[in-house]
Design a protein around this nucleic acid. Structure first.
Lengths: 244, 244
DNA sequence: GGAATAGTGTCTGTAAGACAATATAGA
DNA sequence: TCTATATTGTCTTACAGACACTATTCC
């Protein structure tokens, strides 16, 4: 720093997205097959470089969300996940990536017909398995995103972001069971989730299911932080041990 | 993107530090008075640009920690807090800052005699008051850091990072009371903190206080995540209402 | 002994987990 | 009727919070 001619180094800034949703009662993440080098042909998170030097980071995240997944900002949770800037993580140079976590309800095939027709939903456990071979350090980013989602289900209303505008309590329980990888007692969950003030509010109507009694519909409540939090079981349950 | 000559824009990358500690039973943050433009003379977080294009982000955080606060990596908690990259946040250009949260035990005047003799510990409530006038968007970064610390006291062993290698349960309670801004029952806290398996382990010795019975000493346990979490009181207590 | 802090015992209300019982749909 | 799911009720246990009480130091 004693050198007067010292100038701060510049870096390339990218935005990567961990987009989570629930499909077939499984937590899935959107991955795209890379069409260019490096890691051509490998699976990677949707994302890319800033468009121009003045683009804001959340704006870039929304842009990539639309370009690569066909998802709009409506009905979608988006939060910053972290920065990944280890030198050498990208062979093209010093690329620092800002990762965002997006949670979307299951939409009617959002990847079909868009620019990113090579995007595909992948179960997170498969994406995180050792033989998945994700590009760059995207395996770690996916792992961090899943872990963030698991943690936030406990003390925030993030679970409703996996559901549509209205949902049944069973659907909400399905979110918790899939993301946490546990089985929850439907009856205790039913009362617990309703006892947390402002978490969900009744929508007044019901929805028929394939079989059984129709279920009341709810919509997300005003509360974002849950007090008391939803408690994640510590003991392994049937569902978790089955997946292990 | 259809323009073949398009090249990704570059940004300047900086690292800023929210260094928290406990002094006089108050949560304090380290601020430095800026000696150069912009915001010359204003208070700001310690930090700076990357030294060279290949410097790793945690390495840069540690370097700034040593340069501007005289703190070494030993006995210190450091975690990434987030990215702040809104265009226009720095008049010098597109500067994207990676904020780190550091938690340090109270050390013997770490700011004296170092390069950053103009660094000063500031109570967080004063740093966050409207008349503090921090440089850049550092007010928000401090607020985010304090909020992160508050949240992590609940479900992680972060509180021990505020203490020295050994500590009494009263000192640990002091951390919770100062960071949360509440009063906790010493007797219930005593049993609660010991019931969380692996949080703290007895060191075997005791420490005399000014007055009263000597207290047993503990050291941080192996557990980083607390199950069950420490519960933060929701109702305002005497201490909180007194500060409001 | 008195003051101050450390540490233990006990009670009570609340909430979580287990699980029986009832309600409402389709077949 | 049976089956399947939704919703309610009840019981037991665990824990948070309030607080009396004992222990150990210095004065």
């Amino acid at each position: 720093m004693s050198d007067d001619r010292w100038v701060a180094p510049t870096v390339l800034l990218a935005v990567d997205l961990v987009i989570l949703t629930l499909r077939d009662s499984r937590l899935q993440v959107l991955l795209v097959q890379r069409g260019v080098e490096p890691y051509r042909g490998a699976l990677a998170l949707p994302g890319g470089f800033l468009n121009h030097a003045e683009e804001d980071l959340p704006a870039a995240a929304h842009r990539e969300l639309a370009e690569e997944a066909g998802l709009s900002a409506d009905q979608l949770h988006l939060e910053q996940l972290g920065v990944y800037g280890t030198p050498g993580r990208d062979p093209r140079g010093r690329v620092v990536s800002v990762a965002y976590l997006a949670v979307a309800p299951r939409l009617p095939e959002p990847t079909a017909g868009t620019d990113a027709s090579d995007a595909c939903w992948t179960p997170t456990d498969r994406a995180l398995s050792p033989d998945a071979r994700l590009a760059f350090d995207h395996r770690r980013i996916v792992a961090d995103g899943v872990e963030r989602a698991r943690a936030k289900l406990e003390y925030s209303a993030l679970a409703t972001a996996f559901c549509g505008p209205t949902f049944t309590i069973s659907e909400l329980r399905d979110v918790y069971e899939a993301v946490w990888g546990v089985s929850l007692d439907p009856r205790n969950f039913y009362r617990k989730v309703q006892s947390v003030d402002g978490f969900i509010v009744p929508a007044g109507t019901t929805r028929k299911t394939d079989t059984g009694r129709p279920a009341r519909l709810f919509r997300p409540g005003p509360r974002e932080a849950l007090h008391p939090p939803m408690t994640r079981p510590t003991q392994p349950t049937d569902k978790e041990t089955a997946e292990a």
